[in-house]
Structure formats: structure tokens, C-alpha cells
């Protein structure tokens, strides 16, 4: 569904993606983890051509997104929903209007139907009573969920989530995980999830990829992932206390 072929990307003298190749299947939930600043957001932005590669090609199904422009690009982008790392809500619109924006501006749906759908999607992300509030009146985590509701309102076939659960409490995070999982099971949505939350990675991912120094050093199922011998993976798991107990458990004072 999404195929990276030898993609390289450099910002000035800083190499971010280095000959990166991988493929994401239809109906998969592909989780990308990695340290901060390793290029996870950059990878996601390449999929919708907010950035284009210096070298290499990116395919979305049969569409070559890395060279698309104009109408062609609009058509490809309509297949996507994207949750930005920083939510990117329009500040002068209410939460409800933000969620309904893609339908209000991109289709001829009557206003009542748009509002009803927006309300529905807000419920899905566990938000009620925010419809008439402005983003500046919402907490960071709530803004994130409004952004998520906006990303899914057009029922896109591919959804890209840039850190959907960062800044959320564990209970709400599990709600979001359940939402991502149900979109995959019920609607066959292909998802790409960037996250620092290893718990959600292991529970929702059909495959997990670790991005390190511009390459995917490990791509495997959650079961294989926690048994991987790769040192970078081990570091990641240790840091999340998956394989090693924290000090306060092993040395109770």
C-alpha cells in the first residue's frame, strides 16, 4: 500500500533518511518508533508529500506520490487522514467546526449532517461537550484528540498518526488505541502510527519498525520485536522496563 524505495533525505548537512526502503501492507497498523529527532515525523510527511525525497521514490498503491503535483496530488492526499504532532487546529474555529472542516470545505454536505458527523467522531475520541469550545480553551491532550477526530472524519483509507497518545493519560491512551484497532478491524483502514508509547505500539501494531540513523533497523511483529537481539531494540525495550525491572523494584530500600 505504501512503499518507500531507497529514499534519502537531507536537511542541509544533516542526513535524516538514508536509503530507506520498506513496504506497508493494506489493512496493516504499522508502528514506527525511534528516538526523538530520528526522522519519524519526516518519514510520515514524505507519505503525503509535505516533503519530497532527495533520492528514491514513494508509492501509495499505484500512485507515485513523491512526484505527484496539482490535481493528482490532491486526489492522492484525499486518501489520507493525518494527525499532526502539534494538532494543527485552526484557532478561530470551534472544535466542532475544526472537525467538520474537511467536509464543509471539500464536499457539498449540508451543515446539519456535517455537525452530526463531527459530534459522532468527537464521541469516538472520548470528547463530549467540547463542540462549541475554541482550541485555546482545550488542554493539549484534548486538542490532540480533536485533531484525531478531524483526521478520521472523511473515513480515509490510510490514516497517519504522529504521536496520537503523547500528552494523554494512560486511560485515554487506551481508548485511542482501541479506536485505532477498531478502525483497522471494522473498516480495514491502513494506519501508520508514530509513537513513544511502547505499550500502545505492542498492543495495536501488526508490525513495529525501529528507525535509527535514517534506516529501519528492525521491522517485525510485536512478538518477534520483544525477542529481538538487535542492540538498538534492546536499549529501547530496557528503557521501557519491558525486559528489565526498574531499580525501585529490584532494590527496594
Amino acid at each position: 500500500m505504501i512503499r518507500f524505495e531507497h529514499v534519502s533525505k537531507q536537511f542541509g548537512s544533516k542526513k535524516v533518511l538514508d536509503d530507506l526502503s520498506f513496504e506497508i501492507e493494506k489493512g496493516e497498523t504499522f508502528v514506527i518508533i525511534g528516538r526523538s529527532g530520528m526522522g519519524k515525523s519526516v518519514t510520515i510527511k514524505h507519505m503525503v508529500r509535505l516533503l519530497s525525497p532527495d533520492k528514491g521514490r514513494i508509492w501509495i498503491g499505484d500512485d507515485l506520490v513523491s512526484e505527484a503535483r496539482g490535481k493528482e496530488l490532491s486526489r492522492i492526499r484525499l486518501r489520507f487522514g493525518l494527525l499532526f504532532q502539534g494538532s494543527a487546529l485552526l484557532q478561530w474555529l470551534t472544535a466542532g467546526d475544526n472537525v467538520g472542516l474537511p467536509l464543509r470545505q471539500g464536499s457539498n454536505m449540508p451543515q446539519e449532517d456535517v455537525d452530526r458527523l463531527a459530534e459522532e467522531k468527537l464521541k469516538l475520541v472520548d470528547l463530549s461537550d467540547v463542540f462549541h469550545k475554541h482550541p485555546s480553551d482545550l488542554s493539549g491532550g484534548m486538542q490532540k484528540r480533536v485533531g484525531l477526530a478531524r483526521a478520521i472524519i472523511t473515513d480515509p483509507e490510510i490514516i497517519l498518526y504522529d504521536e496520537p497518545t503523547s500528552g494523554l493519560d494512560p486511560m485515554t491512551s487506551r481508548t485511542i488505541d482501541a479506536l485505532i484497532e477498531s478502525l483497522r478491524v471494522k473498516l480495514g483502514v491502513t494506519s501508520v502510527v508514530v509513537t513513544h508509547d511502547l505499550h500502545s505500539a505492542l498492543s495495536i501494531g501488526t508490525r513495529i519498525a525501529l528507525l535509527e540513523k535514517g534506516k529501519m533497523v528492525e521491522i517485525s511483529t510485536p512478538q518477534e520485536f520483544i525477542r529481538s537481539k538487535h542492540p538498538a531494540v534492546r536499549d529501547f525495550l530496557d528503557a521501557n522496563f519491558i525486559t528489565k525491572k526498574p531499580d525501585w523494584e529490584t532494590h527496594p530500600s
Partner: peptide, 8 residues
């Protein structure tokens, strides 16, 4: 960018 992704 978000607007452009939504093809607005």
C-alpha cells in the same frame, strides 16, 4: 500544511 493535506 494541514489544510493542504485536507485538499483545501
Amino acid at each position: 500544511s494541514a489544510l493542504e493535506i485536507m485538499s483545501i
